[in-house]
Amino acid sequence: MRGRLYWQLAKCGWRRQTTYRAATIAGMFTNSVFALVQGAVLVATLHAAGRRIGGYDTRDTLTYVWLAQALIGPLAIFGGTEIAERVQTGDIATDFSRPITLQGWWLSSDVGRAASAFVFRATPQFVIGAVIFTLAIPTSPVRWFAFALSVWLAVAVCFSLHFIADLAVFWTISPRGAISSQVLLMLALSGMLLPLGFFPTPVAHVLRALPWAAAVQGPIDVFLGHGNAGFSLLRQALWAVALLSAARAMAAAAHRKLVVQGG
């Protein structure tokens, strides 16, 4: 019974995402321009450094750039959940009047949103890159399967990071601090702006162990065949479980201390 509900919620999330076609096209355009610039900079860096950094050659680097840009939509790197907004307006009260946990409701619809963004935004986005450049595209079905799994784990990790940052509003009144810190950490530490392989090896090791790497670098590593895919998936899965549990506990704590602003 519950499964049907989550499925329906995901469908609503999917349909909602598909409503905004103009935004999807505008987003793809922005991401493509950024990918061209980022690609030029990274390839120049790569050539200056002797055509290879941390396992990345030119083709891997360009693939990384277009893949990372493609994942922005499904992972909602910049946009969090709407929860902070709903807490501020008091709309959160309606969320708490439903027979479902806050996390169950928002995670299910986010999964639907991510699926829609993956099909209608990420896929065409990556195809644009693949048309312009020669990219490293996996040929093995196993690799594709592992990649798909990895993207879903990344969605769960990303959702939880956003969810936790948003829920901070229950304690801080203004959500801006927590949310902008979270976006900043995400950009800096996840491999979104620079592949973690480009960092000095000891730093890269530390970064790979952090949750943000599980959000972006994880699926990219699996796609490119860097490192052990099984190990990478396991690390992602552990982060997904840990963060989902943390988010759940935090939502429960938030409910306990709830003060709906604005009466």
Partner: peptide, 10 residues
């Protein structure tokens, strides 16, 4: 009265 249970976009 001043909140919504409905899906705004759907």
């Amino acid at each position: 009265g001043q909140r919504s249970q409905l899906w705004w976009d759907l």
